[in-house]
Design a protein around this nucleic acid. Structure first.
Length: 346
DNA sequence: AAATCGGGGCC
DNA sequence: GGCCCAGATTT
């Protein structure tokens, strides 16, 4: 049996109904693919619906402000995706008259579009024979063919890309790409795959060598670094607070946060008091300091564990350059800040 | 080639 | 607590 025939048969009987499967419009396919990068369908789905509703066309997205795009993206993570999404929308709307590139090579030039996304759009929208390789594809192929090359290496990427390009249904690349990903997500799962009912049970090398749970092979990630974040939640006499936009290179670029004091170690009240007294915003001002959360909130990211304290700074006078407390929910903030805003009774 | 970039779900 | 997710970009 030819690989893609078995796969397509499974897909036709088991695929989910998803909104981006009802269209081949490159704007909607592109939008869904960016949202779904490193993101499970269940998590991305409500964001896709919100973006389609708010920005029905690439021109609507292009005409929005970046802050509006980031606000709608809030909570989804990997915020460079949102910034690149907006930049690409402006490029397509203004330089390409709203028409997306119609082939892999040109799609690859768009900001935020790499090998996977260019292949997905080219195949789904334009029937180009370009195989996708995502986490699902790595898992399905490494198991079926018993390949133990680490997937997060250049060698592994090239090997699996070439293999997928051999296996793809040249007559219907769009269906093949979506089918192999759906099969990986729903059937050939990372944990507890459904081998008992698998249509590939007779030919899957990993199954027949009892190696399913050992594949794919992936080089271990480095341990996350611990950081200590202290946020100054300033409350003025005239119901204002201070939010600052994050600049520079690191996490949460262009999102808003309360003024941040990062420290080498966890700090207590006395140490924070003296840090606050010398802070640019609070110098020569009279305030009362209190700690919102006695135990640090540990916010875990892939490469950082943020031990976080929210310090309440009650000002005895007014604040000239703040924002009104009522408006804090208008700003795009990291979920760590958003959770605090929701829980804190302003 | 290795590190970085989020947040949620599963075990 | 570790691993994974319809990866891309920077270092």
């Amino acid at each position: 049996m030819i690989f893609y025939k078995t796969l397509n048969n499974w897909y036709s009987n088991n695929k989910r109904e998803l909104p981006w499967r009802k269209t081949a419009n490159p704007y909607y396919i592109w939008l869904s693919e960016i949202i779904l990068q490193q993101t499970q369908v269940a998590q991305g789905l409500p964001y896709y619906s919100a973006f389609v509703a708010e920005f029905p066309s690439v021109f609507d997205l292009a005409n929005a402000s970046e802050s509006q795009v980031l606000k709608l993206w809030q909570g989804l993570g990997y915020y460079s995706r949102a910034r690149n999404l907006h930049a690409t929308a402006k490029y397509v709307a203004n330089e390409l008259n709203g028409k997306f590139p119609d082939n892999y090579k040109d799609l690859l030039k768009l900001k935020g579009v790499g090998d996977y996304t260019a292949s997905a759009i080219a195949s789904i929208c334009f029937n180009e024979v370009a195989a996708v390789v995502d986490g699902n594809v790595y898992r399905v192929l490494s198991r079926y063919f018993g390949i133990d090359t680490p997937i997060n290496t250049t060698k592994g990427n090239k090997e699996f890309k070439a293999l997928a390009q051999e296996l793809i249904d040249k007559k219907d690349p769009a269906t093949f790409n979506q089918a192999i990903m759906e099969f990986g997500a729903m059937h050939c799962k990372p944990k507890n795959p459904n081998c008992d009912t698998c249509p590939f049970i007779n030919s899957c090398i990993a199954y027949n060598k009892s190696e399913v749970e050992n594949l794919p092979v992936k080089l271990k990630a480095n341990k996350a670094k611990v950081k200590h974040f202290n946020f100054l939640v300033i409350l003025s006499d005239d119901n204002q607070t201070v939010l600052e936009q994050r600049q520079g290179k690191g996490i949460w670029q262009n999102l808003y946060q309360f003024p941040l004091v990062e420290t080498k170690n966890e700090v207590g009240f006395t140490e924070m008091k003296s840090l606050a007294e010398t802070h640019q915003l609070l110098k020569d001002r009279s305030f009362e300091l209190s700690l919102y959360n006695k135990e640090s909130i540990v916010h875990k990211l892939s490469h950082q564990h943020l031990h976080t304290k929210f310090w309440i700074v009650k000002l005895e006078d007014e604040l000239k350059s703040g924002v009104s407390i009522a408006s804090v929910t208008d700003y795009a903030v990291p979920i760590l800040i958003g959770n605090f805003i929701e829980a804190f009774n302003f």
